[in-house]
């Protein structure tokens, strides 16, 4: 078990966004989180790396443990280094391809050219982008296609050597071919990392996750093995969502 969530509540001002979530995330699995818009799945994700701390008037109750340690007590930079995140849209920084990937390591105090070059190469290889960009590392990241940009963002996340990677609807802006490449990368990554994938695309969850959690209106309806959720869910609402009756 990598992460354990115990009775997690999150409030944004008067909005009760997460209502008593308890679950476990296992080492080296892909956990898919599905649910309609505003179901709380993204809030859940942003709680794990404490990006929620940035919101005004946010309040959290309950506990999240990583390797048995309360994430509120881990230094937040170290926590975010250990729990990386890939965002919904490809969000390269306005830097070169190389500098995008090297951004994280540099922030963590790595400045030697050789070392950085190694990290950049390995990270780009792991996100299947290296072959496409190795000759133009110094050109702007904005010149890449959407799918390439998203894989660049994955590489950037990998470059700080996280233990867990959170994907927040990583393919929402991508075409099917780019989506397939990102999914391929994710399946490869779970050998070394623990992945949490928030997605609006139930089919994507079915394709890549080992287990799936279904969120609805701030509650965790159920979490179970992917095939179980998609063929024989315990809760009616899960079945209804998956078959497309709402959401």
């Amino acid at each position: 078990m990598k992460i354990k969530v115990e009775d997690l509540h999150v409030y944004y001002g008067s909005i009760h966004a997460l209502k008593g979530i308890s679950m476990e995330i296992r080492r080296n699995e892909i956990l898919g989180a599905i649910g309609p818009a505003n179901s709380g799945k993204t809030s859940f994700l942003r709680t794990l790396n404490r990006l929620n701390d940035l919101e005004l008037h946010v309040r959290m109750e309950g506990q999240v443990l990583m390797d048995g340690e309360d994430i509120q007590k881990i230094n937040v930079s170290l926590l975010r280094k250990r729990i990386g995140m890939v965002f919904a849209l490809p969000l390269p920084l306005p830097l070169s391809i190389f500098d995008n990937v090297a951004y994280g390591p540099r922030m963590h105090g790595i400045h030697k050219k050789k070392e950085l070059a190694d990290i950049v190469e390995k990270s780009l290889k792991a996100s299947y982008l290296w072959e496409e960009v190795k000759d133009r590392l110094s050109s702007s990241a904005f010149k890449l296609s959407g799918g390439q940009q998203q894989r660049l963002c994955i590489a950037r996340t990998l470059a700080v050597e996280p233990e867990v990677i959170l994907f927040d609807e990583p393919c929402s802006g991508l075409d099917p071919i780019s989506t397939a490449k990102v999914e391929e990368a994710m399946l490869e990554l779970k050998e070394k990392y623990t992945l949490v994938l928030v997605t609006n695309n139930t089919k994507q969850a079915a394709r890549v996750s080992d287990r799936v959690a279904f969120f609805l209106m701030g509650e965790l309806v159920e979490v179970d093995g992917t095939s179980k959720i998609f063929t024989n869910p315990r809760d009616n609402r899960t079945g209804e969502y998956i078959t497309g009756r709402f959401g």
Partner: peptide
């Protein structure tokens, strides 16, 4: 992947 970050070193740097 090569472990470039040594945890203890990272912690001192963070401090």
């Amino acid at each position: 992947m090569l472990r470039i970050f040594k945890t203890r070193e990272t912690i001192t740097k963070i401090q």
